[in-house]
Amino acid sequence: MAIVVAAILGAVAVMVMSFSSLAVHKAAFGAEDRMAREVDEVLLHLQAWYEQQADTIAVSGITPSETQLQAALPRTYPGMRLAMSTSMASPGCSAGTIGCIPWRKIAAWYPATQAPAATTLQDGLPVSEFTGDAIWRIYSAQGWYFERYAQTQAKLNDTARALMNFFVGRKGVNPVFSHDTNFWRASDCAQPESSLPCVDAYAALSGSGVANVMGLAATDVTAPLGTAIEFSNLQDSSTVAPFSVALRVVLPWGGQIRQTVLQP
Results as ranks from 00 to 15, higher is better:
L205W: 06
A218T: 15
V210S: 06
N212Q: 09
G209R: 12
V221K: 00
A186F: 01
M214C: 06
D200G: 03
A217Q: 13
A217K: 12
C198E: 12
S195V: 09
C198H: 10
N212H: 07
E193W: 13
F183A: 14
A204Y: 04
G215S: 06
E193L: 15
M214D: 03
R185W: 05
A190N: 06
T222Y: 01
A190C: 02
A218Y: 08
V213Q: 09
L196P: 01
S206L: 07
P192K: 07
A204H: 10
V199I: 12
E193A: 15
V199Y: 03
A217P: 01
A190T: 06
V213N: 02
S187F: 06
A204T: 08
A211S: 14
A190H: 03
L196K: 05
V213A: 11
L205S: 03
G215N: 01
L196F: 00
A211H: 07
P192F: 04
D188S: 11
L196I: 00
L205Y: 06
G207H: 08
D220V: 06
G209Q: 14
L205I: 09
L205C: 09
W184H: 12
M214S: 04
E193I: 14
A201P: 03
V213E: 04
V213F: 01
S206F: 08
L196S: 03
W184T: 09
T219W: 05
P192A: 02
S194W: 15
V221C: 01
V199E: 05
V199M: 00
E193F: 12
T219H: 10
A204E: 11
V210N: 03
S195Q: 09
S194P: 08
A218V: 14
Q191T: 15
C189H: 00
C198Y: 12
N182D: 15
S194F: 14
T222H: 01
V213S: 00
L205D: 02
Q191H: 15
F183P: 12
Y202G: 05
T222N: 03
V213K: 13
A218I: 13
Q191V: 15
S206R: 12
L196N: 00
R185H: 11
W184P: 11
S194H: 10
A218Q: 09
D188R: 03
Q191N: 15
A203N: 13
M214A: 07
S206N: 07
S194C: 11
A203G: 11
A204C: 02
S208V: 07
C198Q: 11
L196E: 01
V221H: 02
A211Q: 13
C189N: 05
C189T: 14
A204I: 02
G209W: 13
D188I: 08
P197D: 10
D200I: 13
D220P: 03
G209S: 11
D188V: 12
D188T: 07
L205G: 02
S195K: 04
A217L: 12
S208G: 03
S208E: 04
A186L: 08
C198R: 14
T219G: 10
L216W: 00
S187V: 14
V199T: 04
V221W: 00
S208L: 02
S206K: 14
P192H: 01
C198W: 08
F183K: 08
A190R: 00
A201R: 00
A217F: 08
A201G: 04
L205T: 00
W184Q: 12
L216D: 00
A203L: 08
C198I: 10
G215D: 03
S187N: 08
